[in-house]
Nucleic acid binder design. Structure first.
Lengths: 134, 134
DNA sequence: CTTGAGTCCGTACCATACTACGGAGTTTAG
DNA sequence: CTAAACTCCGTAGTATGGTACGGACTCAAG
């Protein structure tokens, strides 16, 4: 590991800002290397991978809290927990997809109405989501 | 409309807090009924449906800003502006559908990997997230 | 050896979407 | 008719996920 970096290089490598790195440290997602007696902290290159992990998990809809717990079970045999969390997210997303589809249909019906010039029905956006599903 | 409610009953019916109702009023998502000379404002029952719509739209990932413009489309008849706005929202939703669909596919592929039990040591979800890929 | 860039650290600020609080007025149940 | 409960209204605080700032220190190039 001769390629230890400063925080600035780490941030650049990981594609985030220095402030974001520090924020993740405060949130407990990254640990802060010991500060040398004189000089700057140096970060191992793996840290950049960890930041990448965080960013990818975020893009999949995990909160920083959830990501922190994923990172805590990293490598452990708690695959089942991770699987549960992911499966739960999938279920949430499936519902969102259905509901979003309904809203899209209502809106595009409105657009079609406009195009065919029939001012008959009024747009019922509210009612397409009106049932207390969930 | 003999069933006009006070803000407290509205909030209870809609399953949110009084403060949330007021907040939506401030944000322009709900209008505030006139205050009688002496007494409390009273809210029509439809208002609860409107709040329900807001909540469900939020769960779909719309911001309050976006929801405000969706609400403006409810009950709209077709003028050019309405058509434009609706078409724009449809495009927005199509994009969300694609993004969410991709997230779901990625996540459920990961869950399937867990299930096919080829877990030699590391959880597949963790190891995929840890990858530098992309 | 100076200067400019980068680091350290704390604090403050941003947007979003609430949530809580306090004091005054109003309503309603007993 | 009194007292609890509710409303009104403004202001202030919370959580999330950062971003910005400022002063002191340190490192690296000229």
């Amino acid at each position: 590991m001769q390629h230890a970096m400063t925080i600035g290089r780490l941030a650049a490598t990981a594609g985030v800002s220095v402030e974001t790195i520090r924020y993740y440290q405060r949130r407990g997602l990254l640990d802060e290397p010991r500060k040398p007696f004189r000089g700057y902290r140096h970060y191992p290159p793996d840290m950049a991978k960890r930041v990448g992990f965080i960013k990818r998990a975020q893009a999949l809809g995990f909160t920083l809290e959830e990501i922190a717990s994923l990172l805590r079970l990293d490598g452990a045999d708690c695959c089942a927990d991770t699987r549960e969390l992911a499966a739960h997210k999938v279920a949430l997303i499936e519902r969102k997809l259905l509901d979003l589809g309904a809203v899209r249909d209502a809106l595009s019906a409105l657009v079609r109405q406009c195009d065919t010039g029939q001012a008959e029905g009024l747009c019922p956006i509210i009612s397409v989501l009106a049932q207390d599903g969930e």
